[in-house]
Design a protein around this nucleic acid. Structure first.
Lengths: 154, 154
DNA sequence: ATAAATTATATGAATTTGCATGTAATAGAC
DNA sequence: GTCTATTACATGCAAATTCATATAATTTAT
């Protein structure tokens, strides 16, 4: 019988913190966004604010609940997060006419101008990653990630 | 000249929020850990507390700074986060003798007992993911993630 | 049509977090 | 050895976040 170090190679290669996918994915996300985040901070925005603003970049509008799902935080947090960005005139609110419970949030012209540079920068960093690992590997990884997300919904 | 929808397939396949790797990785991490997190919460622990405790599972000890790097938060936050867990007797502190600035944090017996079930559960969820996607795909993804992390350090 | 259940958002209060800064221990320059 | 710089951690305080709950609009059941 072979040594433990052989049979358990997969388990002992990395410590707990870097062996489990959730931790590893979070770390990779953090590492890849570090440079951009420095700029985001320098623009006076928090990571979550940027995530909300960026997510609205190519959407007409989103409801608070939809936004909460995207930023991974409590709906009550999103309420106040958005409130702040509306005060700053970066976001606008509009009630849905057919269901007046829903509040639709959208990027204002000012908001769009404000994050234009950040959007371009993030696309640029993305391109660097793609260039480094190759379009095929990245696309395959993205595909797998989407599958993981889809599967977890069940 | 072909239509935009053809030449820009890669760019229009997903919206901004799900096209960029950092967002996508974070979402996948969140999705995969959702079930475990429900249990973590039910045990009265926050995501960060669990991340700290779990990371110490197979380490003798770590310094505050090392822990900060793992939970992706300010060192001052880690100080208080650990402080709380020391109060709960889940963690212990020990000064490094050769350099008395450094505080080494370790899991107490009580702490180890407390998260034993969570560690097993997380390993089980990990196994489910591996079974679903295949060991080869998962190992390749982990390898790529580690490469991304390494490369970002520069 | 009305009452009950559900959905979407808001708010109060306690906790957590981050930023700026402070303090103590060590390392480095001279 | 002394002075300065650096490293590791702690703390004050304002802002952000969460949990529990409230409110309002809509849907469902009867």
């Amino acid at each position: 019988m072979p040594e433990d170090q052989n049979t358990q190679m997969q388990n002992t290669k990395y410590k707990f913190r870097d062996r489990l996918l959730p931790h590893l994915l979070a770390r990779a996300s953090h590492s890849l966004s570090e440079k951009l985040m420095a700029v985001v901070r320098a623009r006076g925005l928090t990571a979550r604010q940027w995530r909300v603003l960026g997510s609205l970049w190519d959407e007409d509008s989103m409801t608070l609940t939809e936004l909460s799902d995207i930023v991974f935080c409590e709906q009550s947090t999103t309420t106040r997060l958005v409130e702040r960005l509306v005060d700053l005139k970066l976001l606008g609110k509009r009630l849905e006419q057919s269901d007046r419970r829903k509040v639709h949030i959208y990027l204002t012209v000012k908001g769009r101008r404000q994050i234009d540079e950040l959007v371009k920068l993030s696309e640029q960093f993305e391109k660097e990653t793609v260039d480094l690992f190759g379009i095929n590997q990245i696309e395959e990884m993205k595909h797998q990630l989407h599958e993981m997300i889809e599967h977890s919904k069940k």
